[in-house]
Nucleic acid binder design. Structure first.
Length: 882
DNA sequence: GGATTTCCTG
DNA sequence: CAGGAAATCC
């Protein structure tokens, strides 16, 4: 492989890796490294713990994840380094954790890096080369001119004699048989040094560089110098800096080796030859070099030890932090089963132990408690995490505004234990409040869930989702702040990277809900997010009762309309919660359940993934992509259902597994037909949505560059069609003898509207807002005027019109932010029908064609009517642009 | 240079 | 509706 190719290849790799990290981070950066770790190692709890601790370290140290990840990668224990590499850390029991972590990271690195044997030397050589690049020795080594075009930094290098060209730094250092020896002095420390590059930075690196340069100078007397290494690394140094794993022991016969085959088998061949070459090494130099190596080795080990200690310290701190969390939330757990007073007592005691000066002994003493808590946590389902999240928020709320109560709590709680610290009293107070809240909340939740479960199985989903019926009052205005839409709830709170619905909101909503059926939707924040995994698990276990699921799990209702509930994000960073992932790698608990489901209801999600797959793989189909999965099934307003058949056809979703690192997440990786439909409906409101807006309104989609551009492209296509129609009808009007734009109007029964409606609202199950008609009218007149004025000769004559039209965007109703807005939008009319359409407006019945057209959708009209201030008025528009 | 948009093509 | 190219904007 030519270096050029490898270079680009590596760059691509690193780039991709960075992108991956970035993606992960978007989902949940706090747990991203942990996610990656746990995902990669399913069965080894110890390793997972190590990963967790590492993640926690990164959390506490505020180091960004990129560096953290790098640290893992760079801390790699080189696999070829042999057992000696890790021997240094055998003594300490805690180092096991570290070693496992390193090993795990190593496994990653192995997969990524074609060059397994990197040492710091290579890195430093690269660095030096970059600095001192020049071609001293070129003339001497004409035989390897292909690789020796840059001089080695050390002056002694020029002394290199051609008779021993194979010798290099590595072979010098290695005493027989030992790439390990070659690496162990440097490889590990280098890894740790790189780990700290972001923190320990230049000083450290400079020192190391100096040392290595010393080493190299020491070796420079040798007739067999490092030219191979130099040339080799010279070439390598073009490669991305991340290539620390670059082989630092270049093949001794390198001048015979085609430069294109530096990897792989060469390592073996090189090592065998090294042994021969080593014998030619002068003893003195070997010894002196060995001494040097030993010194450096010790230094490095010392550094490593210190770093390890630091690491352990940090781990310790984090564990303490973890325990604090446990202590706080143990009480809430216990509150469901134990006497309140006992809990309080325990809490107080725990809190007392939480004093900042708490010793490790205290932690050890409470080890039992922690263990229990851990076990409890292990058994908890996501719902508990939500509860805990709420508890935390509650706590925050109390801390924020509850000065007075807190004082009271202090005064009260102070007495019993003589615990003077206000924190203890605070904690007690918090515990009390939390318990109460949790008790009531849990009661309500349980009631709600029981209600839902107790319902008879609903008719097959072909029908509208009646249970989801929402009274029109829920759509007071377009901009109405409807807390019921959990996805749009402005009070969604972020805790770190974790989105937690405000517990107060959720709790407040629950009791007041009009009916159980409505409760379903609104209890979703509690119920829904927990169900997806259960849902899939249960359905995977038994195919029986597939049709029950929609009734049993409200989430599946929404899912059936292209709604995939926003990813359940664990209320706490998982490491803190000690929460074991639920089959992180295993059962696709939310990502692509399609195959595991035999029930017809499962198609909702599978359809999503199907379409997703369609989209993702569309690039590989030359011609008609996604046609097989085309969502366009005219006449099926419950369009999703017709797609159930597609599932089997589009079958294999496994190829998605490499794209989605978060199988448990319910954020979709791609856009579904329903998303397209939704986008089309949104087009009635906005022709030029910003990408931010799209992100807001497609909150159930995991946005990446591809998704974003696809959505943008959709709207671009919409506009294209829109403008084409406008131009067409404008010209038609001119041909028809229309003289003034005033004569043009767009009504619901005009042909233009019909064409547009057919395009964006094919099923005609959406009540096109009047405003769109106005915008269309303006657009049509713009086109008309422009054409009449002969502007259309100008190649960019439409741009002026675009400018006008882009200002006519109106706000998209909040309803569209709901991932399952399609049900709400499209099925609302039927409910209104049954409700009598009390809010129906005059002039509204204009929707043509379909029988349901007579059914109006008050909540969709209402926003238009009640919107207080429109960005523009038809009047001003009619005059302004022209 | 990347993002966005339009235009063109299939 | 997607892909690609070109233009445009920032």
């Amino acid at each position: 492989m030519p270096d050029h190719d490898s270079d680009s290849f590596l760059n691509r790799q690193t780039k991709r890796r960075r992108v991956d990290i970035g993606v992960k981070r978007t989902v949940g950066s706090t747990a991203s490294s942990t996610v990656a770790a746990v995902t990669a190692t399913t069965d080894n709890i110890a390793r997972a713990k190590a990963a967790i601790f590492s993640a926690m370290n990164s959390l506490s140290s505020h180091s960004h994840h990129g560096s953290d990840t790098d640290s893992m990668e760079c801390s790699v224990v080189q696999p070829h380094g042999g057992p000696g590499v890790v021997s240094a850390s055998d003594n300490e029991s805690k180092s096991n954790v570290l070693r496992k972590l390193l090993k795990r990271a190593n496994s990653y690195e192995d997969a990524m890096m074609p060059f397994p044997g990197t040492t710091i030397i290579s890195q430093l050589l690269k660095n030096n080369m970059a600095k001192n690049g020049g071609g001293h020795d070129r003339g001497e080594r004409g035989d390897r001119g292909d690789r020796g075009d840059a001089g080695f930094p050390g002056s002694g290098l020029s002394n290199a004699s051609p008779d021993a060209p194979q010798e290099d730094a590595c072979s010098n250092s290695s005493q027989d048989s030992t790439p390990p020896e070659c690496m162990s002095p440097f490889g590990r420390p280098h890894g740790l040094a790189t780990f700290d590059i972001e923190r320990l930075n230049d000083e450290h690196m400079r020192a190391k560089r100096a040392r290595v340069e010393n080493i190299i100078r020491g070796m420079s007397h040798s007739p067999s110098v490092v030219i191979p290494a130099a040339s080799r690394h010279e070439r390598n140094h073009e490669i991305d800096g991340e290539r620390e794993t670059e082989l630092d022991c270049p093949p001794p016969q390198s001048q015979q080796q085609p430069p294109s085959s530096p990897r792989g088998g060469e390592v073996c061949g090189g090592s065998s030859r090294e042994n021969k070459r080593k014998q030619r090494l002068p003893q003195q130099q070997q010894q002196s070099f060995t001494q040097l190596v030993c010194q450096r080795k010790e230094q490095k080990q010392e550094e490593r030890r210190q770093l390890k200690l630091q690491l352990e310290d940090m781990q310790k701190q984090l564990r303490q932090l973890q325990e604090k969390f446990f202590q706080i939330y143990d009480s809430t757990d216990d509150s469901e089963h134990n006497d309140l007073h006992n809990d309080l007592h325990n809490d107080i005691g725990n809190m007392s132990e939480d004093s900042p000066s708490r010793s490790d002994a205290a932690a050890d003493d409470r080890g039992g408690d922690d263990l229990r808590s851990d076990n409890e946590m292990s058994d908890l389902d996501p719902g508990h995490f939500l509860d805990r999240a709420r508890a935390l928020l509650q706590e925050q709320a109390l801390l924020a505004d509850g000065e007075k109560p807190r004082r009271e709590g202090i005064s009260r709680s102070k007495a019993p234990g003589g615990l003077s610290s206000s924190m203890h009293a605070e904690g007690k107070q918090l515990a009390e409040t939390l318990k109460q809240e949790l008790n009531s909340a849990m009661t309500q939740v349980v009631d709600t869930v029981v209600k839902v479960f107790a319902k008879p199985p609903r008719p097959p989903p072909q029908q509208a989702f009646h249970p989801l019926s929402i009274p029109p009052e829920r759509f007071p205005t377009v901009n109405g702040d409807n807390p019921n839409f959990h996805t749009t709830n402005p009070r969604l709170q972020c805790f770190g990277d974790v989105i937690i619905p405000n517990p107060l909101d959720s709790f407040a909503n629950m009791p007041g809900m009009p009916g159980a059926t409505n409760d379903q939707t609104e209890a979703l924040p509690l119920v829904v997010r927990k169900t997806p995994s259960e849902h899939h698990q249960s359905s995977a276990v038994g195919a029986q009762g597939g049709h029950h699921h929609p009734a049993l799990h409200p989430s599946s209702l929404s899912a059936s309309m292209g709604f995939s509930p926003p990813s359940f994000r664990h209320p706490f960073p998982l490491p803190l919660m000690g929460y074991p992932f639920q089959s992180p790698l295993g059962a696709p608990t939310g990502g692509y359940p399609g195959k595991e489901h035999s029930s017809p209801d499962s198609m909702d999600l599978s359809r999503e993934t199907t379409s997703l797959r369609t989209k993702m793989t569309s690039g590989h189909h030359l011609g008609h992509h996604h046609r097989s999965c085309s969502p366009a099934h005219p006449g099926s307003t419950a369009e999703g259902l017709s797609l159930s058949l597609i599932k089997s056809e589009c079958g294999d979703l496994q190829d998605m597994s490499d794209i989605s690192p978060y199988p448990g997440s319910n954020i979709q990786e791609g856009l579904s037909p329903n998303h397209l439909k939704k986008a089309k409906l949104m087009f009635f409101y906005t022709r030029y949505p910003s990408s931010n807006m799209l992100k807001m309104f497609f909150s159930d989609v995991k946005f990446n560059r591809c998704i974003t551009s696809q959505l943008i492209k959709w709207f671009s296509n919409f506009r294209e069609f829109y403008y084409i129609q406008m131009e067409k009808f404008a010209r038609q009007a001119i041909n028809d003898g229309v003289t003034g734009s005033e004569e043009l109007s767009v009504s619901r029964d005009c042909e233009l509207f019909r064409a547009l409606n057919m395009h964006y609202n094919k099923a005609n199950d959406f009540e096109v807002p009047d405003r769109f008609l106005e915008v269309a009218e303006v657009t049509l007149r713009e086109f008309f005027n422009a054409i009449v004025a002969g502007k259309d000769v100008d190649p960019s004559w439409k741009k002026a019109i675009y400018k006008v039209i882009c200002k006519l965007d109106s706000e998209v109703p909040e309803v569209f932010k709901s991932p399952n807005c399609l049900q709400e939008l499209l099925h609302e009319p039927q409910r209104n029908w049954s409700l009598g359409g009390s809010r129906e407006e005059p002039g509204k019945g204009g929707t043509k064609g379909r029988p349901s057209a007579a059914i109006t959708t008050p909540h969709l009209l209402c926003p238009l009517a009640s919107r207080p201030s429109l960005p523009w008025s038809p009047r001003s528009l009619a005059s302004a642009p022209n």
